[in-house]
């Protein structure tokens, strides 16, 4: 076995927690550690794969998001230095990010042309972050999150002329 990295404890706890929750939910997916401490996530990243991968992702990634939230909450009760645990299912996060960026750019173009704001459907924090970052340096639109909790969504609006 490899020597545990300094922050190996949080990563080990994260993997163990994911594995136990999935087993208790009877979901046939297994997890491996991609990174024990990813600098962007500021925490461990776990890859999940198996026959129930589609079920685990859920509609618009809702189930994966719920599992990630619970695992992060549990890990953070023991390791307050970890910001979050990231769970990915067969490259889902990357595919989702590409699709979201594409959509964000198309909507931004329309907002820029019409001069009218467009509000997107409610999204998870991770999805909203992708929209904000992908449009942060756009010359003619700005973004803002509105609403609370499950209903929080991004509005893309024309950048005010100076």
């Amino acid at each position: 076995m490899e020597k545990a990295p300094p922050d190996g404890d949080a990563a080990t706890l994260a993997l163990e927690t994911v594995t136990k929750i999935l087993a208790a939910a009877n979901v046939n997916v297994s997890g491996t550690l991609r990174a024990s401490h990813d600098s962007e996530a500021d925490g461990p990243v776990i890859d999940l794969t198996g026959e129930d991968s589609g079920l685990l992702i859920g509609r618009r990634g809702q189930t994966l998001q719920a599992l990630q939230f619970l695992v992060t909450s549990i890990v953070r009760t023991h390791h307050s230095d970890v910001s979050r645990v990231v769970l990915d299912v067969e490259g889902y996060r990357n595919r989702r990010e590409v699709a979201l960026r594409d959509m964000a750019n198309k909507v931004a173009e329309r907002v820029a042309q019409t001069g009218r704001s467009i509000t997107l459907e409610p999204m998870s924090p991770a999805d909203r972050r992708v929209i904000h970052t992908s449009l942060s340096s756009h010359p003619s639109v700005t973004t803002e999150s509105i609403g609370v909790g499950e209903n929080r969504k991004v509005t893309i609006m024309p950048r005010r002329k100076k």
Binding site: I21, A24, A25, N26, V27, D52, L55, L56, G58, Q62, T63, A66, L67, F69, L70, S73, V148, G149, E150
Partner: peptide, 22 residues
């Protein structure tokens, strides 16, 4: 329960998956 009921909500989402499997 969690802030804004997020923990309870997440448990319910996972419970739904377990129920679907059963």
């Amino acid at each position: 329960i969690g802030r804004q009921g997020r923990v309870a909500q997440a448990m319910r989402v996972l419970l739904r998956v377990a129920a679907v499997k059963d």
